[in-house]
Amino acid sequence: MKNKLKDNTLVSRIIPSQPPVEVESDVHVVKSRLEWGKPAFTILDVRDRLTYNQGHIMGAIPVPIDELRAIVSTFLDENRDIYVYGINEGQTAQAAQILRSDGFKNVSELKGGFAAWKAIGGLTEGVIESKVTHN
């Protein structure tokens, strides 16, 4: 037990803990975390799979909102930082509320969603995105 405590102390000195995520986050915050390699967060895209496949934030995990409650708890820790975005602000807020009510502590609504991400030049992928960037 003593070695485990010592290891955790060493890790916390090497990788400082992140401040808690805000209820809402600007896309610049998430882009900065990605660019600086700040660990331990997940981006969830709760739009339908067809929309997700057309284009999404690179690395975002697709979990349609109607499947959110059943799927997310099977692969995410309740203390993980989660940034969520949907088709609009209403869907994003609904998804965040579902996650919070299921015990996830660090959930942030990504303001402006995919459109805001694209507007700041964030990395994207998907069927339409690959056509746009390669033409």
Rank of each mutant, 00 (worst) to 15 (best):
D66R: 11
S25V: 15
A119L: 05
A119H: 02
K4I: 11
V21T: 07
Y83F: 15
K131H: 08
V127N: 11
F114G: 02
E35L: 07
K31F: 06
G122W: 00
G122S: 01
K38E: 09
I71T: 07
G103V: 09
V11L: 14
S73G: 06
L99K: 03
S130W: 04
H28R: 08
K6N: 07
V29C: 06
R80A: 14
A119P: 02
H56N: 10
A70Y: 08
T74Y: 12
I87L: 13
I98H: 11
M58K: 14
S108R: 05
A95L: 07
A96F: 01
K2V: 09
N88Y: 05
Q18W: 03
S12K: 07
I57W: 01
P16C: 03
P20D: 15
R69L: 03
I71D: 08
D7I: 14
R69P: 00
V29R: 11
A93R: 15
L10S: 09
P19I: 04
V127C: 05
T74V: 06
G59N: 00
K4S: 07
V23W: 06
G90D: 14
A60M: 00
T9E: 12
E89N: 14
K6V: 09
Y83C: 12
A60T: 00
N3P: 05
K118R: 12
F114E: 06
R100Q: 15
K2E: 12
G126Q: 06
G121R: 02
A93E: 14
R47H: 07
K118C: 10
W117M: 08
L123H: 10
H134Q: 13
K131L: 09
P62R: 03
Y52R: 00
Y52M: 00
V46N: 02
V72N: 03
L110Q: 04
W117K: 06
S32M: 05
D77A: 13
R80I: 15
A116G: 07
Q97T: 11
I43H: 02
L44W: 11
V132C: 02
